[in-house]
Design a protein around this nucleic acid. Structure first.
Length: 290
DNA sequence: AGCATTACCCGCACGC
DNA sequence: TGCGTGCGGGTAATGC
């Protein structure tokens, strides 16, 4: 489900200080910062990518959450004994923070599809819910080994239009699958890629090495614009996975095949590119002659 | 050799 | 009921 803006929204919510003014209004997200892990349980063992369940259960208790962050579509929790907890939500993963027990101390029931649950000494728990079971969790003292293949962060100002242009020309690939490739750029998924290509006026089948410097600059600006708009709207909520965000209300092309293009009024088309549904406006996003 | 492409796989829920 | 589809990504096989 989640792409960069959805993961960023979750990270910001998990990070919020308990004294934060919003917390009183939204009890779904007490801050996890500073809380101490007491234990965990797994509802689906394969959700744990590493280490073994035995080692996972042995290493977790007693570690405090010192930092919460994001790298690409990974959530990252730095713990107090040098370990890092990494969570990738893949297609259908979601997180909840909630009390672990009621006022009488009775454990509260879990939801269907809760694959992992982290219990904290302070009485709250973090539940990882994932209907499709594609999501993964790592507990590691070397997070760089898991994250090392990721390309640059699209919102990092150190990534300049010139860098981006050079990266595009270092490959000879279709723009759509290239932008989805996390080793090229980290954080984009199917929705924001289609939205960015439309905003930049580039056909998804454009070859990366034929993008001009001006078009590369436009594309990078469009990627940043759609990601920032997504973050501002707390992400997108689509299909049966509702997460509170509203970016879906501003989709220009994604999921709108057969409907009018917001720019020119022409009809949005849908293609299959690399097994992924791809939505675009043939008028606003012409395919350059080879 | 190394890069790019394609097909397939992984569980499940939903709409038609 | 059956089929197509999906906010992701890993792997294997094939092609240039």
């Amino acid at each position: 489900m989640p792409e960069l803006p959805e993961v960023e929204t979750i990270v910001r919510a998990l990070r919020r200080s308990p004294t934060d003014e919003h917390l009183a209004a939204d009890r779904r997200w007490p801050s996890l910062l500073g809380l101490t892990l007491r234990g965990a349980e797994l509802g689906w063992e394969r959700t744990l990518a590493a280490p073994s369940p035995a080692e996972f259960f042995a290493r977790l208790p007693g570690q405090r959450v010192e930092r919460i962050g994001r790298r690409g579509k990974f959530l990252r929790f730095d713990l107090s004994r040098g370990d890092t907890l990494l969570i990738h939500l893949r297609m259908s993963g979601d997180l909840r923070v909630e009390p672990a027990a009621d006022a009488r101390g009775r454990p509260l029931p879990l939801e269907p599809h809760d694959r992992a649950v982290f219990y904290f000494a302070e009485g709250v728990r973090l539940a990882f819910n994932d209907a499709r079971k594609f999501g993964r969790i790592w507990l590691t003292d070397n997070p760089a080994a898991v994250l090392s293949g990721l390309g640059p962060e699209p919102l990092d100002p150190e990534l300049t239009p010139a860098d981006f242009y050079h990266r595009l020309h270092a490959r000879r690939r279709l723009l759509k699958p290239l932008l989805l490739d996390q080793s090229f750029l980290s954080g984009l998924g199917n929705i924001y890629t289609d939205e960015a290509l439309h905003l930049a006026g580039l056909h998804p089948l454009t070859l990366s090495h034929q993008v001009t410097p001006a078009a590369a600059a436009r594309l990078l600006a469009a990627i940043r614009a759609v990601l920032e708009e997504g973050i501002r709207r707390n992400g997108a909520s689509i299909d049966w996975a509702y997460r509170g965000g509203s970016f879906q209300n501003t989709f220009r092309v994604y999921g709108r095949a057969g409907q009018p293009c917001p720019t020119c009024g022409g009809t949005i088309e849908r293609l299959l590119v690399g097994q992924r549904g791809t939505h675009f406006c043939p008028t606003c996003q012409p395919l350059p002659p080879n």
